[in-house]
Computed example of a mutant assay.
Amino acid sequence: MANNTETGAVEVRAVAKFVRVAPRKARLVVDQIRNKSCDKALEILQFSEVAAAEPVAKCLRSAMANAENNNGLRRDTLYVKAAYVDEGPTLKRFRPRAKGSASRINKRTSHITVVVAPGKEA
């Protein structure tokens, strides 16, 4: 939780770490929900066919629950103030190839962060 002392606004965040989704693919989903009301963002994620939408929605619901239970904020006034995806550690795997060689397969992970704040009723 971060309190912005200048404006008095409360920001509440949730972080999902080591999610087995490539960051590049998760960023496509996160870009769609930034600066939207939380209810609208959940609706967008629910009908998104991208696999990364599920862990992003889970992180958003967690941030909303944190705001509601820990800070006493009303759910219907929350909006997604910030949402970003950082790169986590890459799992390196090998696949056998022709003539006894091997090629590396990178299984990338993500750290998904969602920040919600009251205001901007939409």
Rank of each mutant, 00 (worst) to 15 (best):
Ile112Tyr: 15
His111Trp: 07
Thr77Arg: 09
Val80Leu: 00
Gly72Glu: 14
Lys99Pro: 06
Val80Phe: 00
Ala2His: 11
Arg24Asp: 12
Leu60Met: 08
Thr113His: 09
Gln32Leu: 04
Asn69Ser: 05
Ala2Val: 15
Asn69Val: 11
Ala22Gly: 02
Arg108Trp: 04
Glu121Arg: 14
Ile44Tyr: 07
Asp39Met: 10
Leu73Ala: 07
Ala122Phe: 15
Gly88Ala: 05
Cys59Val: 04
Arg20Ile: 03
Cys38Arg: 02
Gln46Asp: 14
Val115Arg: 14
Ala52Asp: 05
Val19Trp: 00
Arg93Glu: 14
Arg74Cys: 02
Tyr79Ser: 01
Leu60Pro: 06
Ser37Tyr: 12
Ser37Phe: 09
Val116Gln: 11
Phe94Trp: 09
Gly72Lys: 05
Ala117Leu: 08
Ala26Thr: 08
Glu87Ser: 13
Asp31Lys: 01
Glu6Gln: 07
Ala102Arg: 03
Asn35His: 10
Asn3Cys: 13
Ala26Trp: 00
Ala117Gln: 10
Lys99Trp: 07
Pro118His: 07
Gly8Ile: 01
Arg27Pro: 00
Lys36Phe: 00
Leu45Glu: 02
Glu6Ser: 15
Lys107Ser: 03
Ala63Cys: 03
Leu45Phe: 02
Gly8Pro: 13
Thr77Asp: 13
Asn66Lys: 10
Val12Arg: 03
Ala53Gln: 08
Pro55Phe: 00
Asp31Glu: 05
Thr77Ser: 09
Cys38Ala: 05
Val21Tyr: 04
Val15Arg: 09
Lys58Gly: 10
Val12Ser: 01
Ala26Arg: 02
Val15Asn: 09
Pro89Ile: 10
Gln46Tyr: 14
Leu78Ser: 09
Ile44Ala: 01
Ala82Phe: 13
Arg97Trp: 12
Ile33Lys: 01
Ala52Ser: 07
Pro96Lys: 02
Val80Asn: 04
Tyr79Leu: 02
Asp86Met: 12
Asp76Pro: 13
Ala41Met: 04
Arg20Cys: 12
Asn69Asp: 12
Thr109Phe: 11
Asn70Arg: 11
Arg104Glu: 15
Arg61Lys: 14
Asn4Leu: 14
Lys40Ser: 06
Glu11Phe: 12
Arg27Met: 00
Val21Ala: 06
Leu78Phe: 07
Ile44Phe: 02
Lys107Gln: 10
Ala53Trp: 07
Ala22Lys: 07
Asp86Pro: 12
Val115Trp: 06
Lys58Asn: 10
Glu11Asp: 11
Pro55Arg: 02
Val29Lys: 04
Glu43Lys: 04
Arg93Ala: 12
Arg34Trp: 00
Leu78Ile: 03
Ala65Gly: 03
Met1Gly: 14
Ile112Met: 03
Lys36Asp: 00
Ala41Cys: 04
Phe94Asp: 14
Ala98Cys: 04
Asp39Ser: 07
Ser110Trp: 04
Asn4Ala: 13
Glu43His: 11
Asp86Arg: 06
Leu78Met: 05
Val50Met: 11
Arg93Ile: 09
Gly119Thr: 05
Lys99His: 14
Leu45His: 03
Gly8Ser: 00
Ala98Trp: 08
Cys59Thr: 06
Arg74Asn: 10
Lys17Ser: 08
Lys92Tyr: 03
Lys40Gly: 01
Glu11Ser: 06
Leu73His: 12
Gly8Cys: 06
Thr7Ser: 15
Asn106Val: 11
Pro96Tyr: 03
